[in-house]
Design a protein around this nucleic acid. Structure first.
Length: 465
DNA sequence: GCATGATCATGC
DNA sequence: GCATGATCATGC
């Protein structure tokens, strides 16, 4: 029954289910499959091999779905096990390239995106390090029908957002972090892979629609496992994410830190008391950023305090990094770049008035590509070199160590500073520090400069002046 | 006043 | 015990 592209929905389902528990090598060992190319199974990735050896279709770059007339697109996608045992998607799911010159003419349901991807047969395989691709096993399958998907509303909103940027002549400003679930990821060898856009002379980076890594991770946890203890913020409401967030903000806007502490029965001198208040606003037990909706959209909540004079006193910290991991990465694929390119930050603004901080509202923001590829890159590369060369401590004065890490005054956007319990909270260095001989050093993290971040909050700073 | 090193309370 | 979000403390 080799019909290739002509398989119908039921046949696709049967074949997909038959692949579960098998690797490409297992599939090739089976007698049933007799494809001409069976003896040349070395080209392409796992996805192409599955298309070829499981379904008997040749890789193509057709604008149609893989199976016609069934109208089903086939996607083979990896997930992995994290150190803490949780599952996560290994990659974003890349869909079709965005044709800036034509896609804007369509409505969502008549778009090329919809035509190609409205029904996707997913095959998941478990990615494991140091294992031959042909030995990785397919473990789960799922037919993803967008029309029945609980996230369809958000996906359509995301599509509209991207299309609007094209219509505004701003295709060159699109960022994957712009949207919630459906993203526009860069596609091409480097920043010089550009194409024309209809409403501007500026060439725009080639991009494809994708389901963002964070969204795929939630699908993995939902359909493969590990999902039960994830808290939701949307409980017993028909509101969309945005509507719900707005209703919560409006409920608490204008209240002070002291009032909110009283209302939520929090008596704490913790430095992150405002973030505790924010979790309570959303009636979340743990952390707001760990809820299903925030994870799925890759939104990280942060609180920010604006002083009476409009200054933001403190920079914004990231989790501490591991020195040994930094030197094993390069800029193109490092965690920091990945996070900044794909993450949206939801700032909860507290502004100082008299002896209290008033909750003023939120601001959604992601770092512009331009800043990531210049200032952040310079900082990251210098951090890499500092660690790799063992040149961390510059000198010691009054018991305090002056370092060669990138400081605030040196970089417009970000810097490196300690981040731990105290100076004794150390972690292993890949290369001993030349000056002190230390083989461990106080944990550090990347910080976004307070003065850089200030520009984002002009509306809040001006408003009450 | 600002930049930098250091540190705190919490939750799991 | 540790990671995290965040603010404190001090010398120039």
């Amino acid at each position: 029954m080799k019909k290739g592209r002509l398989y119908n929905r039921q046949e696709i389902e049967i074949i997909s289910k038959s692949a579960i528990g098998k690797s490409i090598n297992d599939i090739l060992d089976e007698e049933v499959i007799t494809i001409e190319d069976k003896n040349n199974p070395n080209k392409g990735g796992l996805g192409q091999m599955v298309e070829q050896f499981l379904f008997g279709i040749q890789t193509n770059s057709d604008s149609e779905p893989d199976f016609m007339p069934a109208g089903i697109e086939l996607k083979v996608t990896p997930y992995k096990k994290l150190k803490d045992g949780k599952l996560s998607a290994k990659e974003r799911l890349v869909l079709n390239i965005i044709d800036y010159m034509s896609e804007y003419k369509n409505e969502f349901k008549s778009s090329h995106f919809w035509f190609k991807n409205n029904t996707i047969q997913l095959l998941w395989y478990l990615w494991e390090p140091n294992k031959d691709t042909k030995d990785l096993k397919i473990t789960h399958e799922k037919l993803l029908e967008l029309v029945k998907n609980e996230d369809l509303k958000q996906i359509e909103e995301d599509w509209e957002f991207i299309i609007n940027k094209i219509k505004e002549g701003k295709a060159h400003e699109i960022s994957e972090a712009d949207t919630m679930y459906l993203g526009a990821c860069s596609k091409g060898a480097n920043a010089s892979s550009v194409r024309e856009q209809p409403f501007s002379e500026i060439p725009a980076m080639q991009r494809a629609f994708c389901f963002k890594n964070s969204y795929m991770t939630q699908l993995v946890r939902k359909y493969i496992g590990d999902y039960s203890d994830v808290e939701k913020i949307l409980k017993g409401t028909t509101d969309s994410f945005n509507e719900f967030v707005n209703s919560v903000i409006n409920k608490y806007k204008g209240k002070s830190q002291k009032e909110l502490m009283k209302e939520f029965n929090i008596d704490s001198s913790a430095k992150n008391v405002n973030s505790m208040l924010v979790s309570r606003m959303f009636n979340v037990k743990s952390k707001l950023g760990e809820t299903e909706e925030f994870q799925k959209a890759n939104i990280i909540p942060k609180t920010i305090r604006i002083e009476e004079n409009g200054r933001i006193k403190e920079s914004i910290s990231f989790p501490a990094f591991k020195f040994t991991e930094i030197v094993n990465q390069d800029w193109e694929t490092c965690d920091l770049r990945e996070e900044l390119e794909t993450t949206k930050y939801m700032f909860f603004v507290f502004k100082k008035e008299k002896d209290d901080y008033i909750f003023k509202g939120i601001k959604l923001w992601n770092m512009p590509e331009m800043d990531i590829e210049t200032s952040v890159m310079e900082m990251w590369k210098k951090t890499y070199n500092t660690i790799k060369s063992g040149n961390i401590v510059r000198y010691i004065k009054d018991g305090k160590r002056k370092t060669n890490f990138v400081g605030m005054s040196e970089n417009e956007v970000c810097h490196v500073r300690p981040h731990g319990r105290d100076a004794k909270d150390t972690i292993k260095l890949p290369v001993a520090d030349k000056l002190t001989g230390a083989t461990e050093y106080t944990k550090q993290c990347f910080w976004i400069n307070n003065n850089y971040i200030k520009n984002i909050f002009q509306e809040y700073i001006k408003k009450s002046e």
